[in-house]
Design a protein around this nucleic acid. Structure first.
Lengths: 158, 158
DNA sequence: CGCGCAATGTTATACTATATCAGGGAGCCA
DNA sequence: TGGCTCCCTGATATAGTATAACATTGCGCG
């Protein structure tokens, strides 16, 4: 275990079982349950290599469970996940993504490729601070910055 | 805050007739027509004090023209407007807004109030440059930054 | 005139998101 | 145990956002 300084931003990404464990712990800490259904949704999210729509996730969960799940139920769970910071939403793509380090909370920036659809999650405190400062200067109370860059990733620029 | 752009970024906001004239000129310069329909949509946009959904705009245009316009037609025109930079889209709100200075092109930042729904349009080259630099550092070609801050405006904080 | 082209109309449909109420299981307490 | 509440999920309906596909109109031009 790396040391947990006040917040050293050692952002190694979790994956596999440790990620599930961390997500579960985060949910429990938020006073939310970790049900079979939620675990199934999380597994699907964690298995994606790019953000997916709620309906795509619904299809994948349905397939995984062998029975039809209503989109409705998936939305409820995704909303909880986002609120608890174990999942993230890409506003400009109406899509959801697992949060590979659910234990630290900060504004995040997505580089969203219009070629392959993949999103790279970047944390940059300098940008975040600057945006929040700009908002504050305008007398605006920033609650949820949405910072996304549409464009082309290195692989898709070719 | 060095101002090295080709133009001086004197961002006085246009309104009323001069704004329409500027928008029209911008569209023509982009090789697009300025039809009665487009003028009607633009008038509605220019009369809004906060971003509105395509359907709300459809209703307003329909009312202004005294006949029912299909949402479809409005979407087409809004898309053109956004492409030509005479209108802007707030991704996190699925809403459209007139661009009060259509003649200069830059990334923009919206402060979107969850209380009153108003959006403040801020231009900040420092943030824009930093975001683009971050993207470039990741080998990502930034084409369209989406920078929006959800929160509460000064009036709604009270 | 006849043709092509762009804009708009018309209709249908896909996609995204939420509301509402019913059912069912776990824990709690008399 | 029985009954109770609370939360999660199911089921259904509907609202809201966006695009597809083809028809029609009107205008400029040879």
């Amino acid at each position: 275990m790396a040391s947990l300084a006040p917040h050293n931003h050692d952002h190694r990404k979790l994956a596999g079982a440790p990620l599930v464990t961390a997500a579960r712990a985060t949910m429990l800490a938020a006073g939310e349950q970790w049900t079979d259904m939620r675990a199934a949704v999380f597994d699907v999210l964690a298995g994606l290599d790019h953000p997916a729509s709620a309906y795509a996730i619904t299809d994948a969960v349905s397939k995984a469970l062998g029975r039809r799940i209503a989109a409705n139920s998936i939305y409820r769970i995704l909303d909880l996940f986002v609120a608890a910071n174990v999942a993230l939403r890409v506003e400009s793509a109406n899509a959801y993504l697992v949060n590979a380090h659910p234990e630290c909370l900060h504004d995040c920036l997505f580089l969203v490729c219009d070629g392959c659809g993949k999103a790279t999650h970047v944390d940059d405190e300098a940008i975040s601070k600057q945006i929040r400062a700009t908002a504050a200067a305008a007398g605006f109370r920033a609650e949820r910055p949405v910072i996304e860059v549409r464009g082309r990733c290195a692989a898709c620029c070719a």
